[in-house]
Structure formats: C-alpha cells, structure tokens
C-alpha cells in the first residue's frame, strides 16, 4: 500500500514528530511504500538543520534525513509556513537578503501543491 504522511507537530517539545518518525519506519518495515512526507505548520521546524539536541538524545532532523535517503522518499517542507518560522533555504535567504539559511538536506521547500500531489499519489494519508 502507498502511504503519505503529513507532519504538523514540532520536532522538539511535543511527541508528534517522534511518533511520525516511528510510524514511517514501521510503514517501510512492513513492506509498504512511503511516497513522501509533507511538513506543515509547526512540522516545518523538522527541517531546521540548526537543531542541536544533547549528544545522548535523538536528532530527529538527522534521523529523517537518513531514513529518506535510505528509502528514496522526499521530505517536503511547506515554504510559506517554513519562512514564517525561520526555516530558510539558500535561495530564499538570498531573496530575503538574510545572512544565513538553515534548511537541512535533503529537506526541500515546496508549495502546498506538493501536499496535493502526495495526497493524490497515496492510498493512505496519516497526520501527526
């Protein structure tokens, strides 16, 4: 079965993104296809490469990146929701004349149209 996931919770301070990550692992382990993960609202903070948890804690940003690269699914971050929360990639930083950007690879800033594409491409959409 084809799964897509919508993550709307923050990577730290609440459990939602951790639950989402564990669900993603289980989807793959069960032999289903994960067509992509879309990050929206507070979920866009999952793309912030500057997150610096303590050494003995899980770095969810890096964990998502590794899982996505291993299993070939996209980590799409809503651009308008991300920019409002200070999650910026290099082109957006240049456009807004910011001195820094922080979007971690392979997360990608995309429009809400990408959520619609994932929605159309999956059998099940699960929100966290």
């Amino acid at each position: 079965m084809k799964f897509a996931m919508l993550v709307t919770s923050s990577p730290y301070g609440e459990q939602g993104s951790s639950s989402a990550y564990q669900f993603a692992e289980a989807v793959i382990a069960e032999g289903h296809q994960l067509v992509g993960v879309f990050f929206y609202q507070q979920g866009t903070l999952n793309g912030n490469g500057l997150l610096t948890p303590a050494a003995d804690e899980v770095n969810l940003v890096q964990a998502w990146a590794k899982l996505a690269e291993q299993h070939g699914f996209g980590l799409d971050v809503c651009v308008s929701a991300a920019l409002r929360r200070g999650v910026v990639d290099a082109p957006e930083a240049e456009r807004a004349q910011l001195s820094h950007y922080n979007l971690a690879a392979p997360f990608a800033l995309t429009g809400l149209g990408q959520l619609a594409e994932l929605s159309a491409a999956c059998d099940r959409l699960v929100q966290f």
Binding site: Y40, Q41, L112, G113, A116
Partner: peptide, 18 residues
C-alpha cells in the same frame, strides 16, 4: 494559533487538484 489560517491556505491549494 495559526491553525485556521494555515488550514484555509491548505484548502485553497488542495482545491486546485481535487
């Protein structure tokens, strides 16, 4: 919270496809 506003943005975007 921004939930209502971000919901509306999502609805309008999704309506272009569905």
């Amino acid at each position: 919270s921004a939930a209502g506003r971000e919901s509306l943005d999502a609805v309008l975007a999704l309506s272009a496809f569905s």
